[in-house]
Simulated assay, not measured.
Amino acid sequence: MECDMNLDGALDREEFVKFISRMTKDTFMTVSQGLIIALAAAPTVALLTKRSTENVPGVGKVVEKIPNSVYASLVTLVVIALQQGSEKA
């Protein structure tokens, strides 16, 4: 309704472009923030937490045996799963 400038009940090409621009602007920002968190921040945080948990009794021995790339991938997958879960709720 807001994008129907000539009030004919249908969207012509220009009105449709305006409608899509409005709809995708917020979505683009949300997706971009999610990708930054999932692909940049999560692996960095994972490696930092791995180093800090290596000295914890019981857990440290297990964490030391896991390669950094596997540990970072697992944490990143968990972050992505949490993001998708919160989007659906």
Rank of each mutant, 00 (worst) to 15 (best):
E2R: 08
L82Y: 03
L48C: 13
K88V: 13
K18P: 01
L7V: 07
V70I: 15
L48H: 11
E15K: 10
I20T: 08
M1N: 11
P43C: 02
A89Y: 06
V75C: 11
S32V: 13
K25W: 00
K88R: 14
E2C: 06
V56I: 15
G9I: 00
L11Q: 05
T49V: 05
K61T: 15
K65F: 09
G85L: 03
V56A: 13
G85S: 07
V75E: 13
L74F: 11
N55S: 15
M29Y: 05
L7H: 14
K61N: 14
E64H: 07
V17F: 08
A42N: 08
E87R: 13
D12L: 02
V75F: 08
F19E: 07
S69A: 13
A40D: 02
S86L: 03
I66E: 10
V59I: 15
S32A: 15
V31I: 15
V78I: 15
L77H: 00
T76H: 02
T53W: 02
E15L: 06
I80S: 08
S21H: 05
K50H: 09
S73L: 12
K25R: 13
K50D: 11
L11K: 06
V79I: 10
T30E: 04
D26T: 09
S52Y: 06
T30R: 11
G60D: 12
T49F: 04
Y71R: 04
G58W: 00
A72E: 13
I36G: 10
R13I: 05
G60P: 10
M5T: 14
L74S: 14
C3T: 09
A41W: 00
T53R: 04
K50L: 05
R51T: 12
A89N: 13
D4L: 04
G9E: 09
E15I: 09
V79Q: 01
M1P: 10
R51G: 15
K88T: 12
T30K: 09
L82S: 10
T53D: 11
L39C: 13
N68D: 15
L39S: 14
E14D: 14
E15Y: 05
V70W: 10
F16Q: 11
F28D: 10
S21M: 07
S21I: 00
T30F: 02
D26Y: 09
V75K: 00
M23L: 06
A81T: 10
T53L: 09
V45E: 14
N6F: 01
Q84Y: 09
D4Q: 08
T24F: 01
Y71T: 02
A89E: 12
